[in-house]
Design a binder for these strands. Structure first.
Lengths: 166, 166
DNA sequence: CGATAATTCGAACGTTCGTTAGAATTAGTA
DNA sequence: TACTAATTCTAACGAACGTTCGAATTATCG
């Protein structure tokens, strides 16, 4: 909180005028971030029907947001388990919705292409690829979100496509 | 440190008889873990020449160790940036060696199969898939290391294989 | 046995942390 | 202008933290 006070220019006590506790502030950050990402995703998915294209939109939306907000990504990754019961469950609900959207996209792909693979492992592997980026991405060295989304999409989708057909 | 004292049954001051500081203890954990993983990997790779098989060994070795030592994995992931200059650089050196081994495996695959893809993105995506597992793996629900290594290997290797050929 | 070394501990140290009381200041309104 | 409400601050509280001091205990060995 003292760091935030310095960075924001407001006094330590001043922060508590706007946020009743450090935990509630963390909760608001997490909630706002996930809500924003889900909202943007839904807008972008509207109207697109091709399953592969929809998964590519999912990846691009995710990477674009988090490469533009690396600090937020770090907070979400590092403080994922820091909230207590009340706050935790509300954030968990949004996360679950986001996860379920991705599961849905994966199932669409499986149905259309008659593929056979574990949706759970596929989705969590994809999240891993995308989320780990906060540990290594350097904007001075690495490509931008669009290009990385392309490459990760290539890797992941080819990985799905050639799975055993029913 | 007070938690460790409780968990180990030794008094708080007693811990400082064996570890001169909390940071040095963290350093020793990180160093020991990475060293062990690299050692085991080298042993398993010895004698195997097929590039695909070698990457599968890499994945299995990684997942087997970290699913057997989830607490260690959490420490490595969460406290990756917690060490200061001296300690940090020594751990960074071992991590770099581990990373470079994986880069080597990827280049072998590219050469043998005449593939074209970004080694950096491939390696970091693979690490992402594997390392993210500490956030979701539940031994009561999820498969064991061998099976997950098989599935992630399938996803990743198919993703590499069909990349544009030279 | 006695003496030295190795081990373990209770109790505290100084610092940092999250938080708050209460005063000072500013903005809004009549 | 004078009064109220909103905002911001200084200064501190109590708890938790990493660490250390010096005494107590235990092991080692002549």
């Amino acid at each position: 909180m003292r760091d935030l006070s310095k960075a924001s220019g407001m006094s330590l006590a001043g922060l508590y005028y706007y946020f009743e506790s450090k935990e509630r502030l963390l909760f608001l950050i997490q909630k706002h971030t996930f809500t924003t990402v889900v909202q943007r995703l839904k807008k972008r998915l509207a109207g697109v029907t091709d399953p592969e294209q929809r998964i590519r939109i999912f990846i691009l939306n995710h990477l674009e947001y988090f490469l533009a907000n690396p600090a937020a990504m770090k907070v979400l990754s590092h403080e994922a388990e820091a909230l207590k019961n009340g706050f935790a469950s509300e954030v968990a609900a949004i996360k679950r919705e986001y996860y379920r959207i991705c599961v849905g996209l994966m199932d669409e792909l499986k149905r259309e292409r008659r593929l056979e693979f574990s949706t759970r492992i596929a989705v969590l592997s994809l999240f891993g690829m995308m989320n780990w980026i906060y540990t290594w991405h350097n904007p001075r060295v690495d490509a931008d979100a669009e290009q990385i989304a392309q490459e990760m999409g290539d890797i992941f989708l080819r990985g799905m496509m050639n799975s055993t057909r029913r």
